[in-house]
Design a protein around this nucleic acid. Structure first.
Ligand SMILES: [Zn+2]
Length: 572
DNA sequence: CGTTTTTGACCTGCGC
DNA sequence: GCGCAGGTCAAAAACG
């Protein structure tokens, strides 16, 4: 009974590791998973350039043309039949080398002069090029570095904020919280612990752990310490609580996820006692593609027909690392099939590309907001202003001041869920409406209420990685086009994000992506968010480790980026 | 041949 | 206890 969407396309899309496929695929892969090179806009280029440069000058050209006929290109390189500018350049260089002597010897002729001039020019150009490339590279590095620092700082900030909020609420809420499984204390400790080690991959920070018991708390702490040593902070995975058999799952986890034994045991117990729900972060984006490319590798492990939606929901799990607990669900919005809803759950236990990391951070912020929310209650609490948010929310806001975010706490969702809506129109009003809408909507889970069709120009463009690339691939009309396509295809939305952030920092205007955000928490009297430890670990993940990449804003620049606002991240 | 996808079976939680 | 719905597992099939 399940409908199944054209599988092949999907696959092509997101994975393709082996890679030796057809040209198209390769290209696509390259573009898409950025792991190869095109990582976010600019960076990618440069990087590419460098590489190219290393091999030979022509690469630039390659790069640009890469999407389409690599074959012909190769031909040129090797054959040397017709030469193009680049080749000429090479010749000149050659000339230069040998030419210098010749010129010296002959010491005459205009030709010689010309040669020299040319040589000189070439040299100059070459040098210039080199310099530029170098600079680009440096810039890129800086950007990376910046992004990292930013992430680290951001996390710290977030955590501090959270702690503060907890402190504030501690007396009054503690009991409640504890009861709810959300021990703020635990969280606090844990975060702290985790913080220290902060490495580049910070994603996991806020995983609230479900610990209703002291043991759980201890466990979490232990884990934090243990994790601290490592780089990637392997969190234990927490899988899901809900669905399928715990027993099975636990066993599996043990094998799959290398988790500190002690922590795990405790975690299991805790988990057993109370199944918690892990927070989730869902992203709504317009895309015809079956799945948005987010830079991670996913393996589909299930598909189901969701209840009030004609479209099937697909379940994926991260395969970038062996025991990575991150999962995601992909489903099309019932109201508007052009909208793809991707929901992430869990934290990656491995390093992510910078872009992904950034995204993870963003999501984390969202999750933090969600988690730190005041006793979630009732149905919908749209947060229109930062003031109404919990500390985390505040921080989120601060982080993305321009984002028109909003949070809604809803009782209907089974899991605490925060939604980043990239389909929203920039107008805050729309977002608000949306949020309210959402809140009102009774239905289950992650879903979306009726969505405003206001089209967000830029965003729309952003999230269509797959389709675009295909088109671009087939006919790369111009460099720009190709580039655009590449960008569009580039999954590393993160990079774009980073770029946006950095630009903001620098005072540049990034595009304005407005996103609407809404959060839903299970009312359950309390955010039950805490961790679940899934079978084993006990850690709850905050949802957010997930990475998703949307297309970068940069993308293409197609739309007029207005500047009104800057950065927002869309993230996935 | 190793991976990933497909898909029906299973499991768990929840409401009645 | 039953049926439903959301999730996951895992054997078989499809890919590359
Ligand atoms: Zn992962």
């Amino acid at each position: 009974m399940e409908l199944r969407p054209p599988p092949k396309q999907q696959h092509h899309h997101h994975r393709r590791r082996g890679g030796a496929g057809e040209e198209e695929e390769e290209d696509q892969a390259a573009m898409e998973h950025g792991r190869l090179s095109l990582r976010s806009g600019g960076g990618a280029f440069w990087r590419h350039d460098d590489e190219n440069r290393r091999r030979g000058e022509i690469k630039e050209v390659d790069f640009f043309l890469s999407s389409r006929d690599s074959a012909s290109r190769r031909h040129d390189d090797s054959g040397g039949g017709g030469r193009d500018d680049v080749n000429i350049g090479l010749d000149l260089l050659t000339t230069m080398n040998g030419g210098a002597a010749a010129a010296a010897v002959a010491g005459e002729e205009e030709t010689a002069k010309n040669h020299r001039k040319e040589a000189a020019v070439t040299t100059a150009v070459d040098a210039e090029l080199r310099r530029v490339v170098e600079e680009n590279r440096r810039l890129r590095d800086m950007l990376d570095e910046l992004t990292r620092s930013y992430n680290a700082l951001y996390h710290q900030f977030l955590q501090v904020t959270q702690q503060q909020s907890h402190h504030n609420h501690r007396h009054p809420d503690l009991t409640t919280i504890m009861n709810n499984n959300r021990s703020s204390l635990t969280q606090t400790h844990r975060t702290t612990a985790v913080l220290n080690p902060t490495t580049t991959t910070t994603q996991q920070f806020l995983e609230p752990r479900a610990s209703s018991t002291a043991a759980a708390v201890a466990a979490s702490i232990d884990e934090g310490e243990a994790a601290g040593g490592g780089d990637a902070s392997p969190n234990s995975s927490l899988m899901s609580n809900a669905g399928g058999g715990n027993k099975r799952r636990i066993a599996q986890d043990e094998t799959a996820a290398p988790v500190p034994a002690p922590a795990r045991e405790n975690g299991e117990q805790a988990a057993a006692e109370l199944p918690c729900r892990k927070p989730r972060v869902s992203v709504r984006a317009r895309s015809e593609a079956p799945m948005i490319s987010d830079g991670c590798q996913w393996r589909k492990y299930g598909q189901k027909m969701a209840k009030g939606n004609p479209c099937p929901r697909a379940y994926y799990r991260c395969t970038m690392a062996n025991g990575c607990p991150v999962r995601k669900q992909v489903q099309r919005c019932a109201e508007d099939k052009t909208v793809l809803i991707t929901t992430y759950e869990g934290n990656h236990n491995h390093h992510l590309p910078p872009a992904a990391t950034t995204m993870a951070n963003t999501t984390s912020a969202a999750a933090a907001m969600l988690l730190s929310g005041p006793a979630p209650s009732r149905d919908a609490t749209p947060f229109a202003h930062p003031h109404s948010y919990p500390a985390a929310a505040m921080s989120f806001h601060q982080s993305f001041p321009y984002a028109s975010t909003m949070a809604t706490l809803s009782a209907s969702a089974p899991f605490p869920t925060i939604t980043l809506d990239l389909t929203q129109s920039p107008s805050g009003a729309a977002g608000l409406m949306h949020a309210l809408h959402r809140a009102a909507a009774p239905p289950p889970a992650i879903h979306h209420p009726a969505m405003p069709f206001a089209v967000p120009p830029q965003l729309a463009a952003m999230y269509l990685p797959q389709q675009r690339p295909a088109a671009a691939r087939q006919m790369p009309a111009s460099v720009m086009e190709t580039v655009t396509a590449a960008l569009a295809a580039d999954p590393n939305f993160t990079t774009a994000l980073a770029a946006a952030i950095s630009s903001v920092v620098a005072g540049g205007g990034a595009q304005a992506h407005h996103q609407a955000m809404s959060a839903t928490t299970p009312r359950a009297g309390a955010g039950a968010i805490a961790g679940d430890g899934n079978g084993d670990g006990g850690n709850a993940d905050a949802a957010v480790g997930a990475t998703a990449a949307a297309e970068a804003p940069a993308a293409s620049g197609s739309p007029p980026r207005v500047a009104t606002q800057s950065c927002t991240t869309s993230t996935t």
